[in-house]
Nucleic acid binder design. Sequence first.
DNA 1: TTAGCACATGCCAGGGAAGT
DNA 2: ACTTCCCTGGCATGTGCTAA
Length: 337
Amino acid sequence: MDKPTRANRITIRTVAEDAGVSVAAVSKVLRNAYGVSDALRENVMRSIEKLGYRPSTAARGMRGRTFSVGVLLIDMENPFLPKLVGGFKRKMAAAGYNTLIGVGEARTHVESALIESMIDMRMDGLLLIAPRLAGKALDQFARQIPVTVVGHHEPDAVAFDTANVDDEKGGQLATAALVQKGYRDIAMIRPTTERRPGDVWHKREAGYRAALSGAGLSHTARILDLSERPDEMNLEINALLERRDRPEAIFCWSDIHGVPLINLARKRGMSVPGDLGLVSFDNTAPAAMPLVDLASIDQQAEHLGAIAAKQLLSRIEGRTQSHHQLVDPVFAERPSY
DNA sequence: TTAGCACATGCCAGGGAAGT
DNA sequence: ACTTCCCTGGCATGTGCTAA
């Protein structure tokens, strides 16, 4: 195959010449625009196929639209992500947009660089999933490109939109279920990452505390921190399970910790729920596996992704008022508590 | 009314010309 | 020699126009 040079590059003009029509006619076919006969459409499509023509994203960008959007993931570990991205992608594809994915590697500078390069590529919008960047930094980017954020609460943000599960309600739901089962000594596990105001576990903790308070158990509230690094995490979980003051039940902020916790407990010969009641968050695929069978709060990830797409599309269409939407969590009932 | 055409437009990179 | 300024090429799109 020839290297694409100026002389042999297939452009809209090449297609027009091949089909024997004007450049504008080809453009209309490409955009499904009004005023094209079936015969002309077929004629143009034949040439497009024959020549293997692809519209230039760069040139489209010049006119204001590239019909591509970027998704920024924090990392590739979280099993909650595929459904979310899937829901988003499907909705965007239906609207004629391509979705390209970048991974932030859980580092701020990598994340910023990715966002910048997505802006440079003249993408039409960005979906940021649980970004490490927050507040002013996000505002700065959102002034340059439409942005929707998922997995990060910032209800006062004006420049961008957010879509989240109601994490507080989720925390409340999980904790209330434990209370209802008769547990009184209920601890919450949260991650030992740096504390940022919009973090989801923050809201989940508020829900946990609200449920305890509603049951008159505020004084029993206990927060346990676990590392997110696998090697450290396992050591810390084992230490927790050996504690003499081990809680009767645990509300775990995420399956990231919930699944290893239930596994390690059973590996030690403990019965869950006999020796320890456990309700987790995210309802990811591992939690639903038969030998894990972990009760978990479902974020309705796919639905959340579709909502985020809808928000982004309307931003791209010019909406300037911000939307901050919360989705109701659903309790995925399983016998782990 | 409809189909199709011509042409201006958008923005950036690269190159030439002019200025320091 | 270097900087600044201006012009042009690159490509797809959308408006306004014409012919049937």
